[in-house]
């Protein structure tokens, strides 16, 4: 009887621990994502739109998952320093400059997590450390 109880207690504790670990990860994602939504509203939405739709051939949409994945380490630099020159998004070329946005590394991580998990994108959490690493290697 007491063995049975102890056994189920162990199972219960282990389950709890696993659940705690998982929710830790998703908690981090949720924190980044919800803060990122605010950063997006304040710094990006005017141009890129509430649904990341961009504006005709003037401002690119943010729904090109392939572009985001390929340029994941360059994106923090584009946000911080602005972006000039021609880029191809969803098969269309865009050539107008994006102004620099002086955001902190954590804000950049938040907004990138938000963008890369909105508008049909589904990428991993982009955390502050990886943003700092990318920023150190800006061209």
């Amino acid at each position: 009887m007491s063995w049975k109880l102890a056994g189920s207690l162990v199972v219960f504790v282990v389950t709890l621990l696993i659940a705690a670990c998982q929710s830790d990860e998703s908690l981090e994602f949720k924190r980044y994502y919800s803060s990122g939504a605010l950063v997006y509203q304040q710094h990006c939405q005017n141009c890129h739109g509430v649904n990341g739709e961009g504006l005709s051939a003037l401002i690119p949409p943010l729904s090109d998952s392939t572009y985001l994945r390929k340029n994941i380490t360059a994106l923090p630099c584009y946000i911080k320093n602005g972006l000039k020159g021609q880029i191809t998004i969803k098969g269309k070329t865009f050539e107008d400059a994006m102004p620099a946005n002086d955001l902190s590394p954590v804000e950049i991580a938040q907004v990138l997590t938000y963008v890369s998990n909105s508008f049909g994108n589904k990428l991993n959490t982009i955390d502050e450390q990886s943003v700092q690493k990318s920023l150190a290697n800006c061209k």
């Binding site: 141009c47 739109g49 401002i59």
Partner: peptide
């Protein structure tokens, strides 16, 4: 214009 013009012209479209 980096501020409100893109929204204005998105709406004007």
């Amino acid at each position: 214009c980096p501020s409100i013009c893109p929204i204005m012209h998105r709406n004007m479209l």
